[in-house]
Structures are given as C-alpha cells and as structure tokens.
Design a protein around this nucleic acid. Structure first.
Lengths: 338, 338
DNA sequence: TGTTGGCACTCTCGGCCCGAGAGTGCTGAA
DNA sequence: TTCAGCACTCTCGGGCCGAGAGTGCCAACA
C-alpha cells in the first residue's frame, strides 16, 4: 500500500480511537494533512473503503476503521508507544506491593492491567505442564481424617481433606510425611505416580492416591484460577452505552469455565496475541478487541494476562502497558519464588 | 394502617416487582380487587401517596413504591416464600460440590447466590476475631530463605516467605517445626505472642515474629477476601439500561477495599440486613437494595453473603433463597471443617 | 496523470407538533 | 363509604422539517 494511504489509515485510526466519532476528510486535512486538499483525502478515503479498511455508518458520515482496518494498523502501522514514567512507577509499585501468594498476585495483575489500560482485564494463574513436589505435610484432624498439604514448585499450596479407612495418630502421620518428603521432595510428578503404583494397599497408598490426583488436576489445568477486573472502565466507552453489549462481555467474563478455555486457546504458544472484532470465535466478543500476553516466574510456568475493550482501542498503548505489567509480574513472581 | 391499604400496598409492590411498570388503579382492580371499583382503589392509592409509601413518575402515570413503601412492605407485609424444590436442589448441589478450601467455597457461594436470586451478589470469607494455630510447617527454599506454612483453625492456609539472618538446613527446620507444633498446636494466638516474647534473638524468634504478624493480620481482618458475581443479571433489569447506574454499582463492587468495609459495617451483628435505596449510606448505591446475611462454620467464624439489585426486588424470594444459600454454605464448611 | 475547487446530493440529528392512550382527581349520586 | 362519569394532564411515538456534516463527481489545472 502506498505511503500516503498508510498515513491516512493511521490517522483515521488514531483520530477515531480518541474521539469515537467518524472522521471526515476535513478533520483529517486540518489536523494531519495541511498540504493536501480535502478532495484528495476524500479520494484516498474512498480507495481505503474499497480496500475494505474503512467504512461509513451512513452515506454522509465520516469514516470508521473496519476490523480489517484495525488489523492492518496493528500489523503494519502501529509504533511502540513509550510509557510515561508515572505509569511505569505505578505498575512497579502495585506489583512490588503484592502479597506473596499466587492468588493475590493474579488479582493484583488483573487490577493493574485494567487500571493502566482503562479497559476490562483478565488474568489467569501461571500453570505448568509438569509439576514438582517441593514439600508435603500431613495433619490429623480427626482419628480417621487427615489434611494433606502439598507444596508444589512455584510455592503453590494445595490442601485436601482425606477420610482414611484406618486411624492414624499425628505422630505416625508426621513420620510418614517425613519419609515421603525424602522420597518425593524436589521430584517430578512421575516419581509420585511410580511410588503410588509400587505401594500395597493401606494408608500410604490412599494418601499417595490423593497426591497423584492433585498433581493430575494441576497438570491437566482443569483447576483454574481466572479473575477479571475493570468492567467499570468499559462503561465509560460509548460502545457500551446500551447494556446489551456489556451483557455479552460479562457473560464471557463471569463464566469462569468458558473464560479459562478461551484464554488457553487464544494464547497458544505465541507471546502476544491481538484478536479484533469478528476475528473472535466467540460470538459474544464481536465488536470487542482482546489483547493477551503471557507472564510467569519461568518459561515452564506461564499464566495469561489480557485486556478486553472495544475494537476502537489504543492498541499501541495497550500493548506496551500490558507487556509492562506482564514483565513486572514475572519479576515479582521470580523474586518471590512463587 | 387499615387492612385494605396494606393489601393494596402489597399488591402494588408485588405487581411492580414483576412488571417494572407503574401500576394503575385499573390493573389492580382487575387483577387483585375485583370487588372494589377502580375509583375506590384510586382514593386509597392517593392516601398511600400522601403517607409517602407510593409515588408517581408523572401526574398521569400509575404508582410506584417509594423507598419507605418498600421498607413498610419488608417490615410488615412480606410473607415467607417457599423455595421450589428445583432451586433447593440446585443450591445443595452447588455447595456440596465445592472444593475443600475457603477461597473456592466463597466463590461458589457468591455464584450460587447470584444465580438463584438473579441479582448481583457479594460474599466475604468467614473470619474470626481470634485465631487458633492448628499446625505449622517450615520448608527450606534457599539456605537463608524459609517458607512458613501456617494452618489456622478452619483449615485456613497461610504462607510467608522469610529471609533469615542465619542459614538453616531442612533437618533443623523440621525439628524446629515439630517443637513449635507441640508448643502451639491447637492453642490460641495469645500463646504464640507469649512464646514470641519469651524468646531470645535468633531464628526461632524471627520465625515467631512472622507467625504473630500473620495472626495479627488475620485477626484484625485487614486481609480480606471479598468476591462478587452476577453483575450480568443486573443488566437484565430496565433500571440498569443506562450505563451510568451500573457504573456506580460496579465502582462499589470492584473496589474491594471499600466493599469489605461496607459489608462489615452493614452486617453488624444482625443476622439479616435489608438496606433499601436511600437508606444506603453510600451514594453509589442509591436506587439499589442490598440484602445481607451471615454464614460460616461456627458462631465465632462468620462471613457475609449478600445480594445487590434494584429496589424493585422480589424481597421475600431473595431473602428466602439467600438464607438457604447461607445455610447450605455453613453446613458445607462445617462438614469440611474449613 | 494527479490534484483541486466547486457543487449537488444524501443522510442524520434535534426540535417541534400532534393525536392516541393511560391514568388521574374530583364531583355528585346511591 | 362507594362508585360511575368526566374533564384534565402527561407521556409516548410518529411525522415533519431545516441545519449541518460529509460525500462523490466533475471539470479545470499544473
């Protein structure tokens, strides 16, 4: 595409992003292209419309980018936007101040992302495809009831209440825990499965069954922690003035199970994903843009943080800030060993 | 107030609750009071307006209950509404299926409350004013880094990463943990504080300092777990068709810190609290009604679950179902010992 | 050939009017 | 005290209209 067309497309996107009003040839001329006449710009706009990058709400209105228009912008025209120091500092502060557990950090990540991008946000907890057992503990609740505490790599705590067939004292449990710790501590989940298989029926086998179950749940990712925040930001946008639009977005956000799948499917193995309007497979997100990136303490342990807003979104700003949040969160998690 | 006036007020509330349209004398006559003429009803309606229980959007519209009208209804006219078996079963299923940890249960409680009342919901985790230490564990992460795992009464797990001045091996830590468990296990937080005071400087004192800090945090309730759900339900109500109304509610719901305070302040020590429209101290909740009740595994450990919706709310149904959810959650927590 | 000023055309938007309809309050009679 | 009748008030939706914004096209020009 010729340079001038690109420049005009970029200008339309930029202008529409901030004003939310269809942009006409005159506005472009006075604000971006003083050397061109509005007639020239009009003919370029007509071309861009023919190419499918722009459209008009009605014959005598200005132009609005189509989904393809945004896509072209994102792929070829977008420049990296520097993040103001104030925002950088805010992100740092928020994430440094996060308490040392996954749940809290994920919530903080969602909150920060929503806040700095002024859109709705989602975040899921980092999850690995292979788990390591770091530590294990057994606490007697009742004579035949045991609480199993499992510390996975990444300082993820899991607990399970377990009704055993035979009674056990706390002393016995402590001993058993110590033995299991030396066998399994620091080992991958495979080890636990092998150990389970090797056992004869009894308390230890029952216990290890639970351990394996927890590991399975974790590795299959069917236990999911997904949070969302910043829905109120969407209400500031004219796109969501009528409630039906917001309703659809909320159906996605509040349906945790679905949201989890969506995030997992979208992020794939790419590190930055931008989905615009009709590119969304989910019908509720038509008209919305989704920007996702991954974060986590290590390459093996990755969660997703993302932003949902109208397609008329400040893409370059959103991407920059979202990535900053992801970087900050990764550092914090790394530092905490969480 | 005379019986007939009460009956008419009740009818207006009931009718308006379902239709959301101002109710006129004729509608009342044909649907509730076939033996009265519409003129008679009109004069009663005029009286109820004078009393401040009803109002009209404009001179030639039907009547709408005022906040006082709802208040009178709730205090004197509301009858207990039986819960359909299907709904009862749904509540049971949802709560029985909740995983055995507090976080998950609180989320499940909010989700269920939102679902069965078709409104937005909030829930906070049960919290006691005094904590008991059930179990404690120490895991060595790095030579000078220790993870402290603390199991409080109610199976609440807390973790803290702690950088120690002196290095310690896992064996030493295990020994120390065992000693502390026998000293503190099952004891109240006072014991931990006394033990902390009695110690000389050193690893154990550092550790106990953290333990005491966690207990403090918990007992002061400054660590808060509050979740909300079902905002999408509000969008079905005409009251929230224009986005500004929803915006205000979302500001309350998404501002966790504020929400926590609000819940704590509202519930006080009563077991059921209904706040209607202008009775709300928070300006964002004018026009909304809030219904709250408490739940938890024991009398000492109470959380709050509540519903937020338009003042035009099916109060008797909401109260009945909310209490059923609270009962179900309490049972589940009791059973899990969570 | 690309650019430009001029111009007719199209479409939205807000304001206005108006009639239908709903619901009221009042009044006088039973 | 109840009720039928009636005049009155107000909203709501539809239709109309003029202002304004923006377009596409065309002919002229460099």
């Amino acid at each position: 595409m010729e340079n001038r067309k690109q420049a005009i497309l970029r200008a339309v996107v930029k202008e529409f992003t901030t004003s939310a009003v269809p942009v006409g040839s005159q506005a472009l001329q006075t604000r971006y292209f003083v050397n061109l006449s509005s007639a020239t710009i009009r003919s370029e706009l007509a071309d861009l419309s023919d190419l499918g990058y722009l459209t008009q709400p009605h014959t005598s209105a200005g132009r609005v980018p189509t989904d393809s228009g945004y896509r072209y912008f994102v792929d070829f025209l977008m420049d990296v936007e520097p993040i103001p120091e104030r925002v950088k500092a805010f992100i740092q502060d928020e994430l440094r101040g996060a308490p040392p557990d996954v749940q809290a950090i994920v919530e903080r990540v969602a909150m920060t992302a929503a806040s700095v991008t002024q859109n709705a946000s989602v975040a899921s907890a980092p999850q690995g495809s292979r788990a390591k057992i770091k530590h294990l503990d057994l606490v007697s609740l009742e004579p035949k009831e045991v609480l199993l505490i499992l510390l996975l790599e990444g300082n993820l705590l899991r607990q399970q209440v377990l009704n055993t067939t035979e009674a056990a004292t706390q002393a016995q449990l402590t001993k058993l825990a110590a033995r299991l710790n030396s066998t399994l501590g620091g080992r991958a989940s495979e080890e636990a499965r092998r150990h389970y298989d090797s056992l004869a029926l009894g308390l230890e086998k029952e216990l290890m069954g639970r351990v394996v179950a927890v590991l399975d749940l974790y590795e299959k990712g069917s236990e999911s922690l997904v949070v969302h925040d910043g829905v109120r930001n969407l209400l500031r946008q004219p796109e969501f003035a009528e409630s039906s639009r917001l309703h659809q977005v909320l159906e996605v956000l509040e349906e945790t199970r679905y949201l989890t799948l969506l995030l997992r499917q979208l992020i794939g193995d790419s590190d930055l994903q931008i989905v615009i309007g009709s590119e969304n497979t989910s019908s509720q997100l038509q008209g919305c843009a989704v920007v996702l990136t991954s974060y986590g303490p290590s390459d093996r342990l990755k969660g997703v943080v993302g932003v949902i807003g109208p397609t008329r979104m400040a893409y370059s700003q959103t991407v920059a800030r979202l990535q900053a949040v992801a970087r900050g969160a990764s550092e914090r998690m790394n530092e905490l060993g969480v």
